[in-house]
Each structure stands twice: as structure tokens, then as C-alpha cells.
Simulated scan of single mutants.
Amino acid sequence: MDKARADSAAIRLAKTTIKAPFAGVIGLQQVSLGDYVQPGQALTNLVRLDPMRVDFQVPENALAKLAAGLPVRVQVDAFPGRTFTGKVIAIDPQINPATHSVLVRASVGNTDHTLLPGLFARVELVQAQRANALLVPERALWPVGDKVFVFRVVDGKAQQVEVRVGERLPGQVEIRSGLAAGDVIVTAGQPKLHDGAAVSVAPAGAQPASAQ
């Protein structure tokens, strides 16, 4: 009988020790020493800070390029100028019909616990990486029908060349073919140009001169 009581007491004592279900950081306690607590009552918050999970929406027209493992870059207003890196770990299998976007989840390293849950984040999804990509200002493009041209300056004269464009960035466009690194191109006044028109290269910040 004494052994049964001892075993029962040992079981009750073991239940007084609360073990965290995962490694994390404990928040502010919600009870005080000596308080009576009920089963299921919250005692504190336990948060996993490393890695952090970041959920964001991606337009449905980018779905074909989405894949687990794609790198992401994250910035938050709380730490301007700092970029946190991670990768895509999950993609929702359904499209939101209201926003025509898909929910994507990324895992972001946070070893110094700088990021906290609830921060508003701006996420840049890196869908492709190419070394030595050739970028030109978007205003340099001169679309004609279903083709795209750029005016290149050769020996002081305009030369209209067809180009094949690739990825687009804010204000910039990747050129897959038609131009080479070091080419001088026209970024203003294209409506006044034609093949063979004489042009002069203006210094940076100067007003463009008229074609002759």
C-alpha cells in the first residue's frame, strides 16, 4: 500500500515539471509564483525564432517559375538597410480566387534573433540567377509590332538592332541577344531616329541632343 502511494505521488510530482515541446525563447510569464492553474491554462509563450517562417503572396502568373528551394531576400522596416536570406520551403497547392495569387512560405535564418514574429516584411523572390546578365534601361526599348528594337550608336550614327528581352526588373530589362557588353545605346528621342542618323553621346545628366 505504501509503495502504491509512493508511486502515485511520484507520478503527480512528475506532472509538475513542464517541458517545452520544442527549442525556443520563452516570453513573459502569465502566472505568478503560488498561483493555482487549471489544465490547459497558458503559462507563457514559447516562440521558435530560428529559423523564422515568412509567408507571402506571389501572383499566379509567376507560378510556373515557383519551386521549393528558390532563394529569397527579406527586409523589414525595423532594421532598414539589412537583408535577411532564406529559401522557399512550401507552396500552397491552391490559388486564392480573390487575389489571383498563391501563398508561399519561406524559411529565413535568424541566429541572432533579430527578427520577431509579426513584423511586416518585404520579400524578394529570386526566380533565376545568371552570371554576367546584360541589363539596359527599360526606356531604351523601341517596340515595333511584335518585335523589340534598340538603337545602338556605332561610329557616331544610330543603328537599329532587334533584341530579345529576358527578365524585367524595376526600370531595367535583361537583353538575351542583339547587344553586347560595352555597346553604347540610345535611351531618349527614339521617335526622331532612323538607321544612319547622326547622333552624339551626351555626358551623364545632360539634355539629349536632337538627331540629325
Results as ranks from 00 to 15, higher is better:
P97Q: 08
V104H: 00
D92L: 06
V54G: 04
V76T: 15
E60D: 09
A67I: 11
P71R: 14
P71E: 14
V58F: 00
I95M: 11
A90N: 08
D55W: 08
T83R: 14
V74S: 04
K87I: 01
L103W: 01
I91F: 05
G69P: 12
G69N: 12
G81L: 12
F79I: 14
Q75M: 12
V88Y: 02
V102H: 03
V54I: 14
G69V: 11
A64E: 06
L66H: 04
V108T: 10
Q57I: 06
T85P: 07
L63P: 00
P80V: 02
T111S: 15
Q57N: 10
P51W: 10
I89E: 07
P97D: 06
V58N: 01
V74N: 01
D55Y: 07
P97V: 03
E60V: 04
R82V: 13
L70Q: 11
T99P: 06
V102L: 02
N110M: 04
G86F: 01
M52P: 05
R53Q: 14
H100V: 01
E60Q: 13
Q94W: 06
T111V: 13
D55E: 11
E60A: 02
L103G: 09
V108N: 04
A78M: 10
M52D: 00
I89D: 04
T99L: 05
V108P: 05
P80M: 08
P93T: 06
L103P: 00
V54M: 12
F84S: 00
Q57P: 02
G81V: 08
N110V: 03
K65A: 12
A68K: 14
A98N: 09
K87A: 14
L103K: 07
S107P: 09
D77I: 10
